[in-house]
Nucleic acid binder design. Structure first.
Lengths: 343, 343
DNA sequence: CTGAAAGCGCTAACAC
DNA sequence: GTGTTAGCGCTTTCAG
């Protein structure tokens, strides 16, 4: 049997004042409007009875649930937990709870989950699994629901977004490879329906021009997912094409790991024969062999920033006056998967 | 500006029937009590207007929020995401959402979070971060809140729990080491205030007796946390003690990784000079060098099972008639961190 | 079978 | 300053 909870009414009965007075006495803001004596009497009674406010009732009345929705592709992808902790670190102290949902990068699932979150009356959504063209979240945002996207960016919308400096990351990495003497450099690109994949490919072409590296379209392979299997599949195909290259610049770490797996299978030494680079610097990279050279993005801080921006939007009531774009700095991390070009 | 949501009242107005009739027409159970014609008319109007039920209001009225709380130590620990997906896989299709909170294994934080979840009116809690003695969750359970613990077990309580077969796991691992010729085997034990740490240490002693391995108390070191740093610290201390041993059976993978790190630092070869084993089989072990021999626990399935049991408790209204103990099978995974004893 | 009415626990005008 | 009143959107008696 569930023990019945203490309500304002119970406290009112005990203290002999009206419920609304109790409500005021317990509200740090309204409290000033009340006699100090009554206020303390009420508060004493409250925590003597073990009163705990019913947030459901408050939510119904105020239309604010103090809950935010967080959408990610998949929590088992190690890149996301630190982001979630970053979000939590700013939202939780303020009394917000978050409902985390996994979209599995499926369009149908994603749009259904947007509705699930709305039904639950979330005050806002941090969307780290948005698609470049994403009607469901765009609609929600257009209808006034505070939304921020993270890592991704929804085109043709006014949704604020927090991303990494993809341009700088790719540029630094390409320069690193060039400085090691590499000239024929393949790009293991990500899915082009995700802004990350698209931006990094564009950055690769741009950096190529800037650094005087000849970008051969035949050395660009597009993965359909950001995972190891796709990384391996793409590189296998590239090797079979017979094209020559001495380095692989991958659009993310998981693709890079897949690539290394594939090379190992073909008895091609990394970094001896082919250098491989990643992007993201996910946890555990330090433990792997060879340790992957990559671009470090600020995972925890990205979560924090997105949460802070969401707060701004929620407080302002709209994304007016909130920075549309936030670009976080990245950093080159050189490890053992890159070496001087020997060919 | 937030577009106002369609409510039952709106549908009532359009269809010309009373709100309560609308409510019934939309409820799959109550629907039978209503003329087919009216029912379909209402439903048509509902999805034409784009009606979405307000779960907050429903929650207030029915005292069921269709939300469960999930407590874990830390989402960045890779062992937990698969568990969460397991939980989600049974709860989400049924319309439940989960609020995930990280306790960071801090007692104060943990008990505060229990209250946070209760304030939000969760229908139940899956607790994967419980302490052996845990008054806050025990109290909540005693007051009638459905609770299940996962991986951990709260002593002196009737809270149903799902754990792994620690006994079998440790036994298999010790036998594996014995079969490789090891006799002086250290145990890198986990924190003894967590049931996992305590059960695995007890299992180690028991298995030692059963297998005729002499358990030397001097070769048992207790970590204060289940992390790499503690693993390294403990093994460093053990090495400095001058005691001889040829294998380390660790209470979990992270401790084992720390141990390997420490050995590497001291230029002791693993598995050449000392074999090291883990427990849990967390993701990524395949990629590490040396690949860790460990005990595989059923992470996803543990989450699923806990969720199923929680459902039983929630539906039954109490843990009466629900299995108190569920033990999931484990499996020995032999990789490269163990080898024949050479000393 | 459907309408009327009450109320979940709380907040926010509006009175006094 | 504090009590009164009126709902937030929904379910669920109770009538009819």
């Amino acid at each position: 049997m569930l023990k019945k909870r203490i309500t304002l009414k119970d406290i009112a009965k005990v203290t002999g004042v009206h419920v609304s007075t109790v409500s005021r006495a317990l509200d740090p803001v309204e409290r000033k409007m009340i006699t100090e004596e009554v206020a303390t009497r009420v508060r004493d009674a409250a925590d003597m009875l073990g009163y705990r406010p019913n947030r459901i009732a408050t939510g119904l009345r105020t239309n604010r649930t103090m809950t935010v929705g967080v959408m990610i592709p998949d929590i088992t992808n190690v890149i996301f937990p630190p982001i979630l902790r970053g979000i939590e670190s700013v939202l939780e102290p303020l009394g917000y709870a978050s409902i985390i949902v996994n979209t599995d990068s499926e369009r149908e699932r994603e749009s259904r989950l947007v509705n699930v979150l709305r039904d639950r009356g979330v005050d806002g959504i941090i969307h780290a699994a948005a698609l470049r063209s994403d009607p469901s979240i765009a609609l929600a945002a257009a209808e006034g629901l505070p939304v921020v996207t993270l890592n991704r960016r929804v085109e043709m919308s006014k949704i604020p977004y927090v991303i990494n400096d993809e341009d700088a990351g790719i540029h630094q990495m390409l320069r690193h490879l060039r400085d090691l003497g590499h000239r024929r450099i393949a790009h293991l690109a990500g899915p082009q329906d995700l802004s990350t994949g698209q931006l990094r490919l564009a950055a690769f072409r741009k950096a190529g021009k800037e650094l005087g590296i000849d970008v051969d379209d035949g050395l660009i392979v597009e993965a359909t997912h950001f995972d190891e299997r796709e990384g391996a599949r793409c590189i296998k195909a590239l090797l079979q094409s017979g094209r020559k290259f001495s380095a692989i610049l991958s659009a993310n770490d998981r693709l890079a790991l897949g690539a290394i797996d594939c090379l190992r299978e073909q008895n091609i030494d990394c970094p001896g024969e082919i250098s491989v680079t990643g992007f993201n610097d996910m946890p555990f990279l330090e433990w792997l062999r060879p340790r992957l050279t990559t671009i470090r993005i600020q995972q925890h801080s990205a979560g924090r920033t997105a949460a802070e921006i969401l707060l701004q939007v929620m407080n302002a009531g709209s994304s007016q006056g909130v920075p549309l774009e936030t670009i976080l700095p990245v950093e080159l991390v050189v490890r053992d998967s890159t070496a001087h070009c020997r060919s």
